[in-house]
Nucleic acid binder design. Sequence first.
DNA 1: GTTCAAGTTCAAGTGAACTTGACTTCAAGG
DNA 2: CCTTGAAGTCAAGTTCACTTGAACTTGAAC
Lengths: 159, 159
Amino acid sequence: MGSRDLLPMGEITRRSGFAASAIRYYEAEGLIEAHRSGGGQRRFERSVLRRLAFIRAAGNVGLTIEEIRDELARLPGNRTPTKADWQRISRHWRTRLDEQIAALQRLKGGLDGCIGCGCLSLRSCAFSNPGDVHAERGSGARLLPDSLRRPHPTRRTPA
Amino acid sequence: MGSRDLLPMGEITRRSGFAASAIRYYEAEGLIEAHRSGGGQRRFERSVLRRLAFIRAAGNVGLTIEEIRDELARLPGNRTPTKADWQRISRHWRTRLDEQIAALQRLKGGLDGCIGCGCLSLRSCAFSNPGDVHAERGSGARLLPDSLRRPHPTRRTPA
DNA sequence: GTTCAAGTTCAAGTGAACTTGACTTCAAGG
DNA sequence: CCTTGAAGTCAAGTTCACTTGAACTTGAAC
C-alpha cells in the first residue's frame, strides 16, 4: 500500500501539536525519520504521526528521550505497533505510573499525619527526615522514588 | 532564649543533608539567612535547619524554588511555623498531591483501556489526543495537569 | 606560630529538551 | 519573473537547581 502522499512539515506540526523545531529535534535524535523532497524539505510518512503520539504519551508518563528512543527501537521499522508491542509497553508504563502514584500517596499520608502537629522538626517529620536522622546514605524508606524526586540533572548522586 | 550558639556551615550540611553549595545557593536566593563571623564565615541560627527541612519537603512535593520562597515569605521572620501555618501549607501541598495523583490515575485508566487495543492512533488513544483532534488550544480534558507535564523549561507555552 | 581542614567568592559548567536567531532556499500563485 | 510564506541549516540560547573549579582566607588546635 501507499508509500505515496507524504506529509510536509506544516501538516505534521498542525496534527501532532509539536513545534517544527521539536520535530527536527526528534529527527536529529533518531526518534523519527523523514524523507526529503527535491530541494531539501522533509516529507513524512503518515506513520510518524503515530510515532509522535507515542512520543507525547511517553513524555507525559515521564520517560526521557533516551528511554523513548529505546522503546521505539524495539518496534521493528515503521511497523504499526502490534498488540504484543502495546502490551509490553503498557506494562512498562503502568509500572512507572503505579510507582509514582504510590510515592505520592506515601507522601500525602505523611502529610496527613503532620497536619497540626507543628513539627517539621528534622527528627520527627516524615517529610524531611532523609536529611538529619538517618542522614548520609539514604537506606531507609524513601518517600519519593528517584523518578519523582524532581528530575534534578546534577543532583543525582548528592555526593 | 538563645540567639547564641550559631551553627557553622559544616554542622548545617551534616544535619540537613544539603551540600554547602546548595546552602549558599539558597541563601543567595533568599530562602534562608545567615549571620557572619568576624572573617566572612556564615553562622546559622538553629531555625534554618527547620527551614531547610521545609525546603527539602517542599522540593519533594514538587514546588519550585520560587514557590518555596513565596511560601516561606508568609511565615513572618524566623518564627517557628505555628499550627495555623502548617495547616495552610499542608492544605496547599495536599491539593497539589491530590492533583498529581488524580492525573496519574486518569493516565493509568486511559492506559488500561488501551491495553491490547493496538491503537495509539491519534484520534482514539486517550494518551495522545491532545495533539491531533482538539489540537491547538487544549480546552478539552487534559490528561496531565501542568504540574506533572514534565517541568519543561522552554516548553511552557508551546506556541 | 604554624598548620590545615573548613570556609569564602565568583565565574562557569551541567543536562534535559527544546527554542531562538540569523540567515538562505523552496514551492506555489499571480 | 516575482513575491510570499513555509521550510531549511547551524550555532547558540534558555530554564532550573545546583555543582565545580580556581584561587584565596579563617579559625580552632597543637
